[in-house]
Amino acid sequence: MKKALLILSILFISVSYGQEIKQVPQISVSGEGKVKVVPDQASITVTVETKGNNAKDVKKQNDQKIEAVLKFIKKMNLAPADYKTQRVSLNPQYDYEKKKHSYNATQTIEIVLKDLSKYDELMEGLVDEGINRIDTVVFESSKLAQYQSEARKLAMKEAKLKAEDYVSVLGQKVGRAMIISDNSQNYSPQPMYAAMKMEMSDTRVSRETMAVGEINITANVTVSFILE
């Protein structure tokens, strides 16, 4: 019995050693793909904030302003799916020095503007109708999925090119990919935070009030290739 166990142990060691000898040579490299895109739409978050001493009056005033804002948005011919109420609140506030309660009502609307040529007209009209807080303006691309696909392909091409550069001095060739890991982070465009310091003139003049620039859509991969 002991002899049989000894033979099995020797066979196991031999098999393990053989497997180690037959390891496939590989190279692991990373690649990044980046696509620069000019945004074609904006996600805008705005709020009507009303304060006062009577909860009912504060809520009523806030509702009236929001009603005017929504009517204006409809006049701008935005699709109903492109704007929605995001948040509604009515909160009591206590002034410890004056020992008095007051109330703060807010309603927040999120708008997706798909025609950036209407940006100035929209923002001025919102303020005129009662918006007194611009929370964020995020410039985006409506073709995000398409550009993400392009970035992934560029990342794979860079990874293969990098692997070929490394092994070119070794007299070897890059074979098929064994392992592909996607290291990309979720795309998150950077918001522009806007304080309510807007000067409105009675005379509407044509002017540029924003520079959308470009947004970077990136993909990152790690690829292990067989060496031939």
Rank of each mutant, 00 (worst) to 15 (best):
Thr47Trp: 02
Ala42Cys: 05
Ile10His: 04
Ile131Cys: 00
Ile7Tyr: 06
Lys100Gly: 00
Lys60Trp: 03
Ile66Ala: 00
Pro25Ile: 09
Leu116Asp: 07
Lys160Met: 06
Gln93His: 13
Gln86Pro: 03
Asp115Gly: 03
Asn104Thr: 10
Glu121Trp: 08
Ser30Ala: 13
Tyr119Lys: 06
Ser102Pro: 10
Val223Tyr: 01
Ile179Asn: 05
Glu140Asn: 08
Thr108Val: 05
Lys71Ile: 09
Gly31Asp: 04
Met198Asp: 06
Asn54Trp: 09
Glu121Thr: 14
Asn53Leu: 10
Lys75Val: 09
Ala79Ser: 08
Ser16Ile: 11
Val48Trp: 04
Ile66Asn: 00
Tyr147Arg: 03
Gln19Val: 15
Leu6Pro: 08
Met156Leu: 15
Ser28Cys: 03
Gln41Gly: 08
Pro80Ile: 05
Asp95Val: 08
Asn104Lys: 11
Asn54Asp: 11
Ile217Ser: 00
Pro191Trp: 05
Val38Arg: 12
Gln148Lys: 15
Tyr94His: 09
Ser206Thr: 14
Ser117Leu: 09
Gln172Cys: 04
Arg152Gln: 13
Lys22Cys: 05
Lys118Phe: 03
Ser168Ile: 12
Pro92Met: 04
Ala211Lys: 08
Ser30Gln: 15
Gln148Ser: 12
Asp165Pro: 02
Thr50Trp: 00
Ser141Ile: 09
Leu11Asp: 05
Val221Ile: 13
Val167Asn: 00
Ile215Cys: 03
Ala177Pro: 07
Thr203Val: 11
Glu97Cys: 03
Val174Lys: 00
Gly33Cys: 02
Lys153Ser: 11
Ala151Trp: 12
Lys143Met: 11
Asp115Phe: 13
Tyr119Ile: 12
Leu116Val: 06
Gln26Thr: 15
Lys100Phe: 08
Lys59Tyr: 10
Lys114Ile: 13
Val169Thr: 09
Gln185Ala: 10
Val69Thr: 07
Ile215Gly: 05
Asp63Asn: 07
Asp135Pro: 02
Gly171Arg: 07
Asn186Arg: 14
Gln41Tyr: 10
Ile13Pro: 02
Ile10Ala: 12
Ser89Asn: 15
Ser30Tyr: 14
Leu5Phe: 09
Leu161Pro: 03
Val46Leu: 03
Lys143Ile: 06
Phe72Glu: 01
Glu140Asp: 09
Gln93Tyr: 12
Asp135Glu: 10
Thr222Glu: 01
Gln41Val: 10
Leu144Thr: 14
Gly52Asp: 02
Gln41Phe: 08
Ala195Leu: 11
Ser181His: 10
Val69Leu: 00
Phe139Arg: 05
Met200Gly: 07
